[in-house]
Amino acid sequence: MRNLLVLLIVLVGGFVLVGMFVAPNQPELRTWYLANACQHLDKVSPQICDPIRKAEGTPADKT
């Protein structure tokens, strides 16, 4: 059970790190994160998708 929890934490952390560091430099991945993931990641922290939005040139949502 502990191994499953650690795996889940590592996967979520990897997903966030890819969004912050890899996706801004990859157009297809950046588009996917903007369309699908950023709406959920913004609930955790708006700073996660800021590098993607800066690379795309779209303003951040102020909600």
Rank of each mutant, 00 (worst) to 15 (best):
M1K: 15
L7N: 09
L8S: 09
T58Y: 07
D50Q: 09
D42W: 10
T31A: 10
P46D: 01
V18D: 09
Y33D: 05
P24G: 01
V10A: 10
S45G: 06
K62V: 02
I9G: 00
I48V: 15
F15R: 03
P27H: 06
G14F: 03
Q47F: 10
L8K: 06
C38W: 03
G14S: 09
H40E: 14
Q39S: 11
P46N: 00
L34Q: 10
C38S: 05
M20H: 02
F15C: 06
F15Q: 08
K54E: 14
N25D: 10
C49D: 04
V44I: 12
P51G: 04
Q39V: 13
A37L: 03
Q39G: 14
V22H: 01
D42I: 13
M20V: 12
L41D: 07
D50E: 12
K62S: 03
R30S: 08
P59Q: 14
K54G: 11
V44M: 09
A35I: 06
G13N: 13
K54M: 10
V12A: 12
N36I: 02
N25R: 07
I52V: 08
R2T: 12
A23D: 00
P27Q: 09
P24V: 02
W32S: 02
P27R: 08
M1I: 15
P27D: 08
E28N: 02
V18S: 13
Q39K: 14
K43C: 00
V10P: 02
P24R: 02
Q47Y: 09
G13W: 15
A35Q: 13
K43D: 03
K43E: 05
P51I: 03
L7R: 12
D50H: 05
W32V: 05
I52M: 01
N3S: 08
D50S: 07
M1H: 15
G57H: 12
M20P: 04
T31R: 08
P59N: 14
P59M: 13
C49M: 07
E28C: 00
